[in-house]
């Protein structure tokens, strides 16, 4: 890729998946920098040097009070304006697992009305347990999500205790469905709807929703960890299946870097 795409990987306060998220963006062709939240808050204008803003998974502030809540508030209070400017400039953002919880709770997703206000939530799994297990995910046909372009389905691990997607109300859910914002869903191994059945739907998410995007498709959040599937050997069944060298999760990062190279860099 000739044009440089810069991705900012947020770190600090219990963000844990920054290294592997950075690795995924690098393998997808981006230039990356891990930036501590406090350093970014001290110089919010730095955000505009980047094309992609990533909030990785982890346990920010220990999931204390509610997962993602304290980090979401801190981002909103200290960087809210800069983030709005960033996304309104047509740039890309992703929140993975805890990062998804953060984006949802700060109101950056799904942002159906163009304002940062919390419209949906991600709450305790129905099992009330943290679990690590691999799931099958299907991309909603017609979703505007640029991160999921040309992907039909993929495998990835979920690793969370609070991953149950809940929309504010039925009308919002219908709106999201109608516009392809419910971008990613848990499905069975043969790509049939999970229909809420555990553990195919590992947390009881409404309508089996695993990931959502904003109406532009440039802001994306999901509970599963695509950055944990960048190599064939990450897959739990790689010793018994013929899998491509490159993990399916990497395609999500490639899509973003390609989009940014084409439209932003």
């Amino acid at each position: 890729m000739s044009k440089t795409v810069n991705a900012l990987i947020l770190t600090g306060f219990g963000i844990n998946c920054n290294d592997e998220t950075e690795t995924a963006f690098r393998r997808a062709g981006a230039d990356t920098e891990q930036v501590h939240l406090n350093d970014l808050a001290a110089a919010p204008e730095r955000l505009q040097d980047f094309h992609i803003f990533a909030v990785p998974g982890g346990f920010s502030f220990g999931d204390d009070v509610a997962s993602g809540r304290i980090l979401a508030n801190r981002l909103r209070y200290r960087l809210g304006g800069a983030l709005l400017e960033f996304v309104r400039a047509g740039k890309l953002a992703i929140g993975i697992c805890n990062g998804f919880q953060v984006l949802v709770k700060m109101g950056l997703l799904p942002m159906t009305e163009g304002e940062m206000r919390q419209e949906v939530t991600v709450s305790h799994n129905d099992s009330n347990r943290y679990e690590d297990r691999w799931v099958r995910l299907a991309v909603t046909p017609g979703t505007p999500c640029v991160w999921l372009k040309d992907i039909a389905a993929l495998d990835a691990p979920v690793r969370h205790g609070e991953g149950k997607f809940v929309p504010r109300d039925a009308a919002l859910l219908e709106h999201m469905k109608a516009h392809g914002l419910a971008a990613l869903r848990y499905v069975t191994r043969d790509d049939q709807p999970a229909a809420g059945v555990y553990p195919t739907n590992p947390n009881g998410a409404v309508d089996d929703i695993a990931g959502i995007c904003d109406p532009t498709g440039r802001i994306f959040g999901l509970m599963p960890h695509p950055e944990a599937y960048v190599d064939r050997t990450n897959h739990p069944q790689w010793t018994r299946r013929d899998l491509p060298e490159e993990g399916e999760g990497l395609r999500i990062f490639r899509n973003a870097v390609e989009y940014a190279a084409e439209h932003l860099a």
Binding site: N16, C17, E20, A24, G58, D132, R159, A228
Partner: peptide
């Protein structure tokens, strides 16, 4: 299963 087996990727 309640332990994270694969953080750090």
């Amino acid at each position: 299963r309640m332990y994270d087996h694969e953080v750090r990727g």
